[in-house]
Amino acid sequence: MKHLLDTHDLSIDDIVNILDVADRMAEVNRRQVPKVPALKGKTIATVFFEDSTRTRLSFETAARRLSADVLTFLASSSSVNKGESLRDTIETLSAMGVQAFVVRHKSSGVPLQLSQWTDASVINAGDGWHQHPTQGLLDAYTITREFGTPTSLAGRTVAIVGDIKHSRVARSNIDLFTRLGARVVLVAPPSLLPSHVETWPVDVRSTMDDVIDNVDVVYLLRMQLERMQSASIPNLAEYTRLYALTPERAAVLQDHALLMHPGPMNRGVEITVDPADVAGSRILQQVTNGVSIRMAVLFTLLGGDSVSSLTAGGEA
């Protein structure tokens, strides 16, 4: 595997392997000195054409724990704002000697486009409405580990709630969850469902109350407040009434059900209950797992010398 651009490029074996490696990374992360020399001498550039401090910090933390050197490229402070082309940007950074690019862009497809102009690995850290593969992997990791079924989600039902149409997280998660055997139910107002949703491997329900008491996972998406302006939803109060996780709805969740959210949360919009009050909330665990998954992805793509480099431990 050279790049991680789209979950669809991963075979089931690839997925299971990354989740396995993430277990080892989680073990590293629990050490007193959570750092291994696995990617010593490698340079990883985070290239964020769109701001996402959390995702960037998660990748950079992952890279540093593997002892890679990290370059940070933020479009807001770069020549991209002076009209530099994608190709020129990536070729310039490649010339500095970079083994992997972690790319975030507001336009779908940019990581794939960039991969044709560099010999380095390209990792998609979120592109437009298209894909966010490491989010999908960390979510699959979180759920499989919680339920103790490391290679499968068979028999589980995951409800993904919110703005599916504009969500790269939903596209990655739906692909990974369904291929691992889960049933996925989308819960969204019609205007926030993608066109041709009937061709997706999912069921669709129109209110949270249709599903809340019989799912294994409630996965809330962040409601993009700017969608309000484009009139995709009638109004926020209506959205909250039909689609938010309220204390009342949280109360009817099954005992084992998990609450997940990719962050950052809009409290009072898609979630009105305090997640701290929901026993099944794994929202912070997702963040922790995110570092392990990103370590696993970097390690897998950059061919960390060997698994033994993970057990060496300590500062190299």
Binding site: G109, G128, W129, R168, S195, W200
Partner: peptide, 15 residues
């Protein structure tokens, strides 16, 4: 084109 492919790719569709 706003079709099945576009829907999966997450690209704004041209109906």
């Amino acid at each position: 084109h706003d079709g099945e492919c576009c829907s999966h790719l997450g690209v704004p569709g041209w109906p």
